[in-house]
Amino acid sequence: MKKSFLILVGAFAMAGCGQKGAATGAAGDQPPAAAPASGISGPKTAFYAKSGSKMRIDGTANMIHKEWILQSTVIGGSLEVGPNFPTQPGQSVQPGKVEAAGKAFMLVSSFHSIEADGRPYKVEMDDRMYQQMKAEQYKRIEYTLKELTLQGQSKTNNSAYDFDSKGDLTICGVTKPIAMPVVITLMPNNMIKVVGSVTVKGTDFGVEPVTLKALGLVTGDDYKLSFEWNLGQRTAAAGAK
């Protein structure tokens, strides 16, 4: 395990952010803003990030430490939806485009390496990850929702609805379009939970796979990003910032 860790840290050291992206979060880590101007016509509902969320990045290698995991337990941002977004559990719906706009962000500094059972893995791995991802320059992983299409009510849970989403993902300052299915569950107290995952290629974001020839080790180019994002509406007392 110790040897494999060394190799993994070494491998991770050689991957990392490319030079081409623009720094994110450079304006500073400001408090979350009000929901972005969405261009949604008609009545809108705004949801704001709440606690209890999780974002996980699963990486691979062809040998030794074949799987490694990074996790963050805080996702910021907001989502605004239009009138054809389901609001009541069990509500029957028509498939089709839903007016929606939103932004999500995860602070790179909130990620830590973990074991499969969720226990912390290694501080050295975290230090290397922050260094190679240039966490001070590229403070955030960001996602901007562009399009949300309702597929229908989930078969297993009548409070949950299946959607297809399209949006832009920014990692290490490089922005690429991604499409992924998401499940949005209506929760009590006007909360929603958005669950989804997407596998991206590191090379698309300037993160090259690593080859350590002496060992025959190659890290995988696939990174699976999976998340559970909790959002809720603001009460009149809380007010929007």
Binding site: Y48, A49, F105, L107, P120
Partner: peptide, 25 residues
């Protein structure tokens, strides 16, 4: 604490939860 404030605003419960986790880990 800073990450919660930046991501979620001034949410005392979320801050307490994040601090608990940091202390536990």
């Amino acid at each position: 604490v800073e990450n919660v404030k930046t991501s979620l605003g001034d949410d005392p419960e979320a801050i307490a939860e994040a601090v608990d986790k940091a202390r536990k880990d």
